[in-house]
Amino acid sequence: MPEGKIIKALSGFYYVLHNGETIQCRGRGIFRKNKITPLVGDEVVFQAENDLEGYILEIKERKNELVRPPIANVDQAILVFSAVEPDFSTLLLDRFLVLIEFNHIKPLICITKIDLTNHDQLVAISEYSEQYRKAGYEVVLTSSETATGIEQLYPHIENRISVFAGQSGVGKSSLLNAIRPDLELKTSGISTHLGRGKHTTRHVELISIGNGLVADTPGFSSLEFTNLEAEDLTFCFPEMTKASENCKFRGCLHLSEPKCGVKAALEAGEIPKYRYEHYLDFLQEIKDRKPRY
């Protein structure tokens, strides 16, 4: 049986890439029975009725999967955040980073709309960028209008499956258009009434860029730590993971425990205060979560 990769899912159809050709497929009923939904990025076995239509028979084991956006087997998440319009949010970025780290996906922070910043805003963004770099993340500053930083993205995209994710209205589609102008993806600005982005991307689709595949995804502005446990959270903050090696007690949650390596690193200025505060917020959220049955 032929095998391929789902590159688009839309209205109950799955578009499978096989030997350079795209075959429109439906999923067999067994997937619904087993409560398995084929996802973009899935490696699948399919049966082709003809050159254009077929059925997905089997989904290969996934190395990872995301719920929102619904995509599987991702190598890298390019987290797109705007410097302004909407304003840069470390809280929202840290929520994304925690989810990405928990799913063992390599993150790349991409801050867009640099051309719209004034001097003070640019200084602040540069300081945040340096702090995230010190934490262990790669950060690229870009502008879709002036093409600033676009060249820096190409090596990250090559030979990988990347997902572009971030709050709606930050310019994900504009950035993809700047990377590959022939895409002509629909873009939209900020809603003046709501103060947030209008959704322009309605489905997930893998787009070929060089020798890599990139997913443009529907924007979203909230994430829930559904499967994350309190003891997992430290390992979603790289700088805290390193500092926790100096904690006296195994399983330290870095609250009021004595001889805590994370608290010591915080006091020494090695961990930004806002990152630790976000950790505390997320930890409380996880503790307050209703138990699953």
Rank of each mutant, 00 (worst) to 15 (best):
E3K: 15
K5F: 00
K8Q: 13
A9Q: 03
A9K: 02
S11I: 06
S11E: 07
F13T: 00
Y14Q: 01
Y14C: 00
Y15S: 00
E21Q: 15
G27S: 15
R28A: 13
I36L: 13
L39S: 02
L39E: 00
V40N: 02
V40D: 02
V40A: 04
V40Q: 01
D42N: 03
D42K: 01
V44Q: 01
V45R: 04
A48G: 02
D51H: 11
D51F: 08
L52I: 04
L52W: 13
Y55H: 08
I59D: 02
K60P: 02
K63I: 15
K63G: 00
L66K: 03
R68T: 03
A72I: 04
A72T: 06
I78T: 05
P86H: 04
P86R: 05
P86T: 09
D87E: 13
F88V: 07
T90P: 10
V98M: 06
L99G: 05
E101S: 06
N103C: 08
I105L: 06
I105E: 02
L108S: 10
C110D: 03
I111P: 10
I111G: 11
I114P: 00
L116G: 09
H119W: 12
Q121N: 11
A124L: 09
I125L: 12
Y128W: 13
S129E: 09
R133G: 08
K134I: 06
G136C: 12
Y137F: 15
T146K: 12
A147T: 15
E151H: 10
Q152T: 09
L153M: 13
Y154D: 01
H156S: 07
N159E: 12
I161L: 14
G166H: 05
G169S: 08
G169D: 09
V170H: 06
G171W: 01
K172I: 10
S173Q: 08
S174A: 14
S174Y: 09
I179Q: 07
D182F: 02
L185M: 08
K186Q: 11
G189I: 00
G189N: 09
T192S: 14
H193W: 00
V204E: 02
E205L: 01
L206V: 02
N211F: 08
N211Q: 14
V214G: 08
D216G: 05
D216L: 04
P218G: 02
L223W: 08
T226N: 07
T226V: 10
T226A: 11
L228S: 05
D232L: 02
C236N: 07
E239C: 04
M240W: 14
M240E: 06
F249K: 00
C252Y: 05
C252F: 06
L253I: 09
E257W: 07
K259F: 12
V262Y: 10
K263A: 01
K263M: 13
L266W: 11
L266E: 06
E270P: 02
E270S: 12
P272T: 03
P272H: 07
R275I: 10
Y276E: 02
Y279F: 15
L280W: 00
D281A: 11
Q284L: 09
I286N: 10
R289T: 07
R289K: 15
R292D: 11
Y293A: 05
Y293G: 11
Y293T: 12
